[in-house]
Amino acid sequence: MKGLQGKRIVIAGGATGIGAATAERLADEGASVVVGDINLAAAEATAKGIAEAGGTAIAVEFDLGDEASIRALVDRTVDEFGGVDGLFNVGADLSPATLGGDVDLLEMDPAVWRRTHDVNLLGYALTCRAVLPHLLGQGGGVIVNTSSGAAWGGEPTRPAYAASKAGINALTRHIASRWGKEGIRCNVVAPGLVMGETQQGQGDQQMQAMALQYARSPRLGEPADLAGAVAFLFSDDAAWVSGQAWSIDGGMSLRG
């Protein structure tokens, strides 16, 4: 893809799954990547694999729910590579305590809503705020955020998760509108069911069968499917794409 050679891109949530696959793809395209994650051991393993394949990557421990940690992630990127050209937000709190406790409104726990929005939405706003001055100072850059089909799917449970993802869509449109004339492109990828480590470990056969039934594809998603789409959005081939929410879900959702 055009324009990725030498770019410096932060992956906020890059240790495993979609984040790791995207870090590997971007590095393969010639970018230098910072693999940020709360799971440092897994982030280091991803960065090591990239380096062994001839790419450039470092691992940084950080927490999307901690503002100081977010600032430190961006500062480390600038210190290590001399600047930053892009940000891929892909992290979320998918823990059993948070996502598993995200039930309908009559049974809701406000603490689950607060934690969900602190990480999934406010965390994204803070990472974007941390990189924007660097992008603006060099005349532009790219941000890609990760939403979900849950933002418009209307599920009977997970309303906090869905609301946080809908908020990410709104955040993305704000950034694209506010700073587009200054060279900032910002887009959203909204995955369907992607069979990364977490999903394979959960082994919910019923959910997988239902997702496959609704997909207009013969298979479920893989992390590499998202990695290719994200790499395209960072590349110069997508220079005229901004403010968009792109469903990467095997055709599960058809939106105009």
Rank of each mutant, 00 (worst) to 15 (best):
S177D: 14
M108A: 15
V90H: 07
I168N: 04
A150L: 12
E52S: 08
D118P: 09
K181N: 12
L64T: 05
I175A: 04
V60F: 10
D102T: 10
P159K: 11
A92G: 03
L105T: 06
P133E: 05
M108E: 06
T77L: 02
A111T: 12
S147K: 09
A97H: 10
D93V: 04
R115K: 15
G101C: 09
R71T: 14
A130N: 10
E61P: 01
V112T: 11
A51H: 08
G83R: 03
G55R: 13
D109W: 04
D109R: 13
D63R: 01
P110S: 09
H117K: 01
P110F: 05
R178P: 00
V103W: 01
G139F: 13
L99K: 08
A151I: 07
P110Q: 06
D63G: 03
G100N: 07
W152A: 11
T116A: 07
A130K: 12
T98C: 12
A68V: 10
I70F: 03
L106I: 12
E80K: 11
Y124K: 13
V78G: 09
A111V: 04
K181H: 09
G82H: 11
L94R: 02
A130D: 10
G54Q: 11
L121W: 00
M108V: 10
L87P: 08
A45S: 14
T77K: 02
L87N: 11
E52V: 05
G55E: 11
F81K: 00
G100A: 09
V60K: 13
L73C: 14
E107M: 09
L99V: 03
A176V: 08
P133G: 06
L132C: 10
L64S: 15
A59K: 08
T127C: 10
R76G: 02
R173A: 08
I58H: 09
N120Y: 00
G149H: 07
R158H: 14
C128L: 07
R76K: 15
P110R: 05
E80N: 02
D104L: 04
L105D: 00
L136D: 06
K165N: 01
P96S: 10
A151D: 09
D79T: 15
F88Q: 01
L73Y: 03
N89T: 10
V60P: 08
T146F: 12
A53S: 14
P156S: 14
D109S: 13
N169M: 06
E80S: 02
A47Y: 05
R178I: 01
A72G: 05
S147V: 07
H117T: 13
E155I: 03
A166G: 15
W152M: 07
A53Y: 09
E67F: 04
G141N: 11
A125N: 10
A151L: 07
N120E: 02
A92Y: 12
F81L: 00
G100D: 12
V119I: 15
E155C: 01
A125F: 13
R114W: 02
F81E: 01
N145D: 09
E52Q: 10
G123Q: 04
I175H: 03
K181W: 06
I143P: 03
L73A: 12
I175L: 14
N120Q: 06
T77E: 11
Q138C: 02
R76C: 11
R115V: 06
T157H: 05
D75N: 13
T116M: 14
S164Q: 04
M108C: 13
V144Y: 13
A45L: 03
G154H: 12
P133Y: 08
A166L: 12
A68G: 15
D109V: 07
D66M: 02
I143N: 08
A68N: 13
E182Q: 15
